[in-house]
């Protein structure tokens, strides 16, 4: 019983988790910052890919539509872990070959950039579907009205389609953001020092597996819950001036 208490001993855990060395709390926070950075970047890149992808799927030619169909199907059927490995090696290979062909020699790719690239491509497939659904949900009349006024296509997108689809897209995008934060953990397997890898290193060095895994879990949970609050606000803002969804459905 005493040994059990020792493992669960809170005083010892606090010491291990303190922010300054010899505590490992600072490492965990640094890992969290890295994770969030990659998640932000990947989410952003995913949105850009998703926006082009959604427009391509809706208005593109047959070839573009088929290619995008293959992209979203493959990405959504193959495990992220496998995709991360393939994209990581393909990405570094391609960039190196390109830069060698252009005569620059080898370039180094920082962990964060590589992480954003691989997770961004994965996120892009999911955002494509979310945004496509949201664009389709925008009443046709609004877009047609804008066109009738002679607005150029890009302006229609910026001023009409995107603002109007926001309220439909936010719940799906909130979900994608959560997936992005959790998927950064997979980068631990490729050796990026994000939260999960930092946790594992700390746990291995101190043998306090429970303490560190629970602490990291708590950090991820805080991010999730805070994101929920933020996205709730965004959804409210995106829906300002619109009748509530419930009323809309009953019509």
């Amino acid at each position: 019983m005493e040994t059990l208490l020792d493992t669960l001993g809170l005083a010892q855990s606090m010491e291990l988790l303190s922010l300054s060395p010899p505590g490992w709390g600072g490492n965990l926070l640094r890992g969290l910052v890295n994770s969030l950075q990659i998640a932000f970047g990947a989410f952003g890149l995913g949105l850009v890919i998703g926006l082009f992808g959604a427009y391509g799927k809706l208005y593109g030619g047959v070839v573009i539509r088929d290619l995008l169909g293959i992209y979203t199907t493959v990405i959504r059927a193959v495990p992220e872990l496998v995709l991360i490995l393939i994209l990581y090696y393909v990405g570094t290979d391609l960039i190196n070959q390109a830069s060698e062909a252009m005569g620059y020699g080898r370039v180094e790719i920082s962990g964060v950039v590589a992480g954003i690239w691989v997770l961004g491509v994965v996120q892009g497939a999911y955002s494509t579907e979310v945004l496509r659904g949201a664009i389709q949900a925008v009443p046709k009349g609004q877009i047609e009205a804008a066109r009738a006024y002679g607005m150029p296509a890009f302006l229609v997108m910026r001023r009409v389609t995107i603002p109007a689809m926001m309220s439909f897209a936010v719940p799906g995008l909130a979900n994608l953001w959560l997936i992005a934060t959790k998927d950064t953990a997979l980068l631990a397997i490729v050796g990026f020092s994000e939260l999960t890898l930092e946790t594992k290193q700390a746990a291995a060095s101190t043998r306090a597996y429970f303490t560190f895994f629970l602490a990291a879990g708590a950090l991820y949970l805080v991010v999730t819950l805070l994101s929920g609050v933020v996205f709730g606000r965004i959804e409210k803002w995106a829906r300002r001036g619109q009748p509530s969804l419930r009323a809309g459905q009953s019509r």
Binding site: T3, L4, T7, L178, K182, D183, T184, A185, L186, A188, I189, T196, T199, K200, A203, R207, Y209, F210, F213, L214, A216, G217, Y220, L221, T224, L225
Partner: peptide
């Protein structure tokens, strides 16, 4: 909430290595 809010990889490691570190005790 906890299951959906934390990465599965972390859950797997917590179960395997966390419990594993208790066995010797």
């Amino acid at each position: 909430t906890v299951i959906r809010g934390t990465p599965l990889l972390l859950q797997i490691w917590l179960l395997y290595y966390g419990l594993g570190s208790l066995f010797p005790q």
